[in-house]
Amino acid sequence: MVLTRTENGLKGSARSIEEYNVFEGLNKSKDYLIKFGGHPMAAGLTLSEDNLESFRMDMLRNSTLQGDDLIPKVTIDAKLSPGVITTAFVKSLSRLEPFGKANPKPIFAEKNLLISQIYLLGKDKDHLKLVFSSNGVSVEGIYFYGVRIIKDHFREVHKMEVDDLSKALKNTKCDILFYPDINSYNGNSKVQLKISDFRISDQ
C-alpha cells in the first residue's frame, strides 16, 4: 500500500496477493476512510492523515494473513520424471508455441532427484551444469547463475555458508522447476533441463 499527501488528504493504492482480499480488508476498516474502491487484488483509497495510524492498526488487527501465506508459491503444469523426458517428448512441446503472456511456457517439476555430478561453467564459474539420477535414468540440467542462487538458498534456508558448492551438492537430493530442451553440440543432441528454481529436498 502506497499513500501520497494531497490537498484532500492521503490518497493511495494497494496491491495484494491471492491469499488476502484487500477490498474486504479495507471494508473492515472503512470507518477510517473517506472513500475506497477496488477488487480483491487491488484497490484505491483516500483518508485523513489524522486517521492514518488508527487505520494502520485496524488493518493489522483485522488481517487474516498467516506466515505461510507470505511464502511465494508456484503453480506447476506437471511433474515429470527423467524417464519420460525423451527427445520426442521435448520436440512435441513445440506444438504449444509460440509462448507469451496469453500462452505462458509450461512449468514442470520433479522431486528427490539425486545430484550425481556438478560442473561450474562460464567465465566467472557462476553457472551450473548438474547431472541428475532417478530410478536408473540420468539427465543433465543447466542452471544459469545457479551458483549464487544455490549459495543463497543454503544461507537463507539452511543457515549454512557454502564455499565448495560441488562438495555440498554431491549425492544430495533436490527438487527443481524446469523446462526441457534439446542441447545440440558437435552433431550430438540430448535432453537438457533448463532449471528455473531449486531447493534441497526435505529429508
Rank of each mutant, 00 (worst) to 15 (best):
A102F: 00
N103G: 00
N103S: 02
P104T: 02
K105F: 04
P106S: 02
I107T: 09
I107Y: 00
F108H: 02
A109N: 07
E110W: 06
E110H: 08
N112H: 10
L113R: 01
L113S: 00
L113H: 00
L113P: 00
L114R: 00
I115P: 03
I115Y: 06
I115K: 00
S116Q: 13
Q117P: 08
Q117R: 13
I118F: 05
L120N: 01
L120H: 09
L121V: 07
L121P: 02
K123N: 11
K123I: 11
D124K: 13
D124C: 10
K125P: 09
K125R: 13
K125A: 13
L128E: 01
L128Y: 05
K129A: 15
K129I: 08
K129N: 14
L130N: 06
L130V: 08
L130M: 09
V131Q: 15
S133F: 08
N135P: 08
V139S: 06
V139Y: 04
E140C: 11
E140A: 14
E140H: 12
E140W: 10
G141I: 06
F144Y: 15
Y145E: 14
V147M: 05
V147N: 06
I150S: 03
I150F: 00
K151L: 02
K151I: 02
D152R: 08
H153C: 11
R155P: 03
V157D: 12
V157Y: 12
K159S: 15
M160A: 13
V162P: 04
D163G: 04
D163I: 12
L165A: 05
K167N: 11
L169E: 00
L169V: 08
T172F: 05
K173S: 13
K173F: 12
K173G: 05
C174F: 01
C174S: 04
I176Q: 03
L177S: 05
L177W: 03
F178K: 01
F178H: 00
Y179P: 03
Y179T: 05
